[in-house]
């Protein structure tokens, strides 16, 4: 489930990448987002938390930006919707989520990015998550392992590539898009 968390958190971080370039410290807006991230989702009595390594990464990034309260409001709204959605699924863990439920979660992240007209996330292999800001700076570089083997990166970016295919096919207006795309999303966040 690391990857699912990573994608959602990464997308949230991506949503903030339009914020001011340099602003030290954690302002009240950023604090509210961190606090929202620390609040667990209740899945059939089980509390599901975002791993501290991801929250710490978000905090490190927040130290380099200056988030506005409007942005924080939007992000907190998305996190809250995501949390309510998880609760409403009636599942007891993220592993049990169906393909369409995972797609919905992915939808929260992507729609937020679209609303704020930001983004640029890129992944690599199935375990590797990278987020790049609009100006090309790496914001998150997470291979899923806290203790590295050697620092060796075996990364390629099919995550992006697959989406490119999806967009390409969409542009072409072919009737094959829908079911292809469904399988993309399912696998991407698996």
């Amino acid at each position: 489930m690391k990857k699912l968390f990573s994608i959602i958190i990464s997308a949230l971080i991506v949503c903030l990448s339009c914020a001011g370039a340099f602003a030290a410290g954690i302002n009240s807006s950023e604090s509210s987002v961190l606090s929202s991230m620390r609040t667990p989702a209740n899945m059939k009595g089980n509390s599901v938390y975002v791993p501290s390594s991801y929250i710490n990464q978000a905090e490190a990034y927040f130290n380099t930006i200056d988030m506005t309260s409007a942005q924080a409001g939007k992000i907190n709204g998305i996190i809250s919707q995501g949390r309510s959605f998880l609760q409403s699924t009636g599942k007891s863990s993220l592993k049990e989520l169906s393909a369409s439920e995972r797609k919905t979660l992915m939808g929260y992240a992507s729609s937020a990015a679209a609303v704020l007209n930001l983004s640029a996330a890129a992944g690599s292999d199935a375990e590797d998550i990278k987020v790049i800001s609009k100006d090309g700076e790496v914001i998150v570089d997470d291979s899923g392992n806290i203790i590295k083997t050697t620092g060796a990166q075996q990364s390629v970016a099919p995550y992006v590539a697959v989406s490119v295919f999806a967009v390409l096919l969409s542009f072409a207006g072919a009737g094959v898009i829908y079911s292809r795309k469904k399988s993309f999303v399912y696998e991407e966040i698996k």
Binding site: A126, V156, Y159, S179, S183, F184, E187
Partner: peptide, 21 residues
């Protein structure tokens, strides 16, 4: 591990997932 690196790079990831489609 070196062999894994080689395989992962030669593979075009996510191709397995879209192959059936």
């Amino acid at each position: 591990e070196a062999s894994k690196i080689y395989v992962q790079n030669v593979e075009i990831n996510y191709f397995p997932m879209i192959q059936k489609t």
